[in-house]
Design a protein around this nucleic acid. Structure first.
Lengths: 352, 352
DNA sequence: CCACTTTGCTAATACGGTTTAGCAATGCGA
DNA sequence: TCGCATTGCTAAACCGTATTAGCAAAGTGG
């Protein structure tokens, strides 16, 4: 508020040298440009004593690089997802000495455009364009003004931007294998999608890919999926309804719920029907929402690696920033981040 | 990546005027400095055609103000809280044409110091120092280099910084009133704190204040709190244990759970004991975690106004930034944001 | 002793804007 | 016709740093 910031000129004066010399020493180019050891020490001491910290704005103007990246997402608050993704990005950024601008578009293209401009005006070194739920997005045309990556999203039209995504197909396989390994081969029902490849809610990449993985493993194992119900909106309410409906026609041995909120609803339906988890029915799910470990019994779930996704986005963005312009060949690369299985208490061998 | 950015000089040249003139027109000082209407139009047209956007870094250097504020919190990912607080701040910031730097300290003072410096180096116009769970924090000494506010936190030592907090005492009163209004006057138990003022988990501001409000209303109504149990960590597990323990000695008519996760555990304990909510036992809680509306029956809860807190922080920060230096009198002001009651299905009149 | 290299530092310019001071042309009153 | 105010614009300085080009002094070889 009060005391003016210490500038390079102050340091130079205190050390009795020119600003040039001070700058050279402090940017580590002193040796290279033959500044004597004596002077170097004087400058360093002065800087230290005055608690000099370079003005990043000035450096940004001069060098054109601000050590700042922008993180633009459709919505940050609605889910915990955002939090962990941002956290991952934040930590990876910190390790590299970079700061993060955050912006939220709420799906509004105008807001998105405005945000991207505001960030570019501030000379960000790169941009992460993130979606909170995996989906395809329309890539704004002028985003390529700076290096950029897509996080948790695929481009609608072909695009040179790399994307970072959870490995949903493999997650689907993992969920199916959890049941197979526990000995399940029949009475397996899907809540949220299926049973056919086309029975998926619109827009959802996760739905399609998880289902693909699930079907693949069961097919290879010669196991038939007993039934599947689509839920448009993957909320507890719908999970409850879908499960209740399924219970009207079947006596299931195992459920694959397409996410934890659906599983939460399924638990309620099963409990209402007097069925116990995992004794009567095993349940596997996806996302590893915090909820999953609060439920009784604790829910076995294939985790969305939000934190890792965030980190990876920063990593990829940095290699992208390193790439000096044209280096064709790996444009539009897709990076898949593994989804780990969290084994808990909701799966047991089928009762005899 | 490729095409150089359009600069003011380009605009000036295209309009056939000096950089000075272009700048004056574009900053709206044209009239004031007697630039002719004709020239003004030429400049505006040129800027428009060239799609000129001022380089914010340069402006920042010259004017010393970057239209950027820093949001530093102890941890953003752990809870949904963060999300909504950030969202509120983000929207309020956008409305004012300001961008947000986000940083996370994980409670590490060194990281915190580093972050604050990194932000000050980038010439932020102000800083929001936020805690995810309401608590007292040690205010870093050199934070006052720029205007700052405390969000969801109180200073440990007296400090000139304003703080923004949820109105927890009033929330406590509201919770108690919900029960009174439903007709409850006995068999009311507290899960998480109490019954005495000193039975609170350490560090938690919310615990103390909620309890204060609760006790005040019941005292005035001449109602006695039947019992209370402290939970150190306000998690479902502890809520379950505490409730089970209480049920061993009492037959409660109503529970005030100190947050929703505790209530979640309490639901399980009540269900295990064959008690139904709200027929046998009414439950009121705090926070309005998303969980609250997923539970069956839906949980009545006094909501933490995260979104509003975030907005308010930006508002207060702006008035703080407006205050040119010394304006004593309202230093260290505390702003309380109301906590609204979300009436749902977990409260009913006491059974006869 | 002189030309030439090396050593050790600095002057000057650039980054892209904003802002102050001031200049040339015109208008106006006496 | 002269002095002075007004109009309409611009030159120049400035923000704080990085970087290029170059200068003076000292050292080196012949």
């Amino acid at each position: 508020m009060s005391a003016r910031r210490v500038t390079l000129a102050d340091v130079a004066q205190a050390a009795g040298v020119s600003r040039t010399t001070a700058s050279l020493v402090l940017t580590g180019r002193g040796r290279e440009l033959r500044i004597s050891l004596d002077v170097e020490q004087r400058v360093l001491r002065a800087a230290d004593e005055l608690r000099y910290r370079p003005n990043a704005v000035s450096v940004g103007l001069r060098t054109g690089t601000t050590r700042t990246i922008g993180f633009v997402s459709d919505t940050v608050a609605t889910s915990r997802l955002a939090g962990d993704m941002i956290k991952g990005a934040l930590e990876a950024a910190r390790e590299r000495g970079v700061m993060l601008f955050i912006g939220e578009t709420e799906g509004d293209p105008d807001l998105e455009g405005g945000l991207l401009h505001a960030m570019q005006d501030r000379q960000v070194d790169g941009i992460i364009l993130a979606a909170m739920y995996t989906r395809t997005i329309k890539v704004p045309k002028d985003i390529a003004a700076s290096p950029a990556v897509l996080l948790n999203a695929l481009p609608k039209q072909p695009s040179p931007l790399p994307s970072i995504l959870p490995d949903e197909v493999e997650a689907g396989r993992a969920a199916a294998r959890v049941l197979l390994k526990a000995g399940h081969r029949e009475g397996i029902h899907l809540i949220g999608v299926g049973p056919g490849t086309r029975n998926v809610p619109p827009q959802s990449v996760a739905a399609v890919e998880r289902l693909t993985g699930i079907r693949e493993v069961f097919r290879e194992a010669g196991v038939k999926i007993a039934s599947g119900r689509v839920c448009r909106d993957w909320q507890p309410e719908e999970g409850l309804l879908a499960t209740r409906e399924m219970l009207a026609s079947f006596r299931p041995r195992a459920l694959i719920c397409l996410n934890d909120r659906i599983a939460f609803g399924a638990y309620q339906a099963l409990s209402d029907a007097g069925l116990s988890v995992p004794m009567d029915v095993s349940v596997v799910s996806f996302d590893d929402h915090p909820l999953a470990s609060w439920m009784r019994p604790k829910l076995t779930s294939v985790a969305l690696p939000h934190y890792e996704l965030g980190r990876k986005a920063v990593d990829v963005l940095f290699t992208e920033m390193g790439r000096d312009g044209v280096a064709e060949g790996h444009r539009g690369e897709v990076h898949r981040v593994p989804m780990p299985v969290r084994d808990r208490e909701s799966v047991a061998p089928p009762a005899e």
